[in-house]
Simulated scan of single mutants.
Amino acid sequence: MSNKSLQVEWAPFTIKKEDFDSMLKASDRMQKEFLSQQVGFVGRQLLRKSDTEFTDLVLWETAEHAQKAMQAAQQSESCGSYFSLMQVDASQISHLDLVKEYH
């Protein structure tokens, strides 16, 4: 797979309560029950900025796969449980083309 086709979803959020354990359990459940089942899903990283600020960084094969998953997430119970623990500013969610990856 060429890196040029990968789509990066950058989704920062703040958890409503300082309850990291509940958020992490909901994140794990969403990963297992929803994201890992989505066509075009490549991988995901949960990043921490502070005790309450996090970002989900999700890799998709294409922008179309990312969009379809975002639509399907609205019907997912595990996504709803995860999202209910956070405050999200939708204007901060970005989809970016991966130009080149370095390791």
Rank of each mutant, 00 (worst) to 15 (best):
Q45W: 14
A63K: 15
A69K: 04
K49A: 12
D51L: 09
R48Q: 14
E61D: 13
Q71C: 03
A72C: 04
Q71F: 07
L46M: 13
V58N: 01
L59R: 10
E64L: 13
Q75V: 15
F41Q: 06
Q71T: 12
V58C: 01
A73H: 04
T52C: 07
D56Q: 05
S76N: 12
V42K: 10
Q45V: 12
Q45C: 04
G40I: 11
A72G: 05
S50C: 06
A72Y: 01
M70V: 10
R44C: 03
R44M: 11
F41V: 08
V39M: 12
L47E: 08
A63T: 14
V58H: 05
Q45Y: 14
L59C: 11
Q71K: 15
Q74T: 12
L59Q: 10
A72Q: 11
T55G: 03
S50P: 02
F41T: 08
A63G: 14
F41G: 02
A69V: 01
K68S: 02
T55C: 14
V58K: 04
Q71G: 05
V42E: 12
F41R: 07
Q67L: 08
S76Y: 11
A63D: 14
D51V: 04
D56N: 12
G43A: 10
L47I: 05
Q71A: 14
F54T: 02
V58S: 01
T52E: 09
Q74N: 07
H65L: 03
L46G: 07
L46D: 02
F41P: 01
R48P: 00
L46T: 09
D51F: 06
Q45L: 12
G43Q: 06
A72F: 03
G43D: 08
W60P: 00
E61I: 01
R44Y: 00
G40E: 09
Q71P: 00
A63I: 14
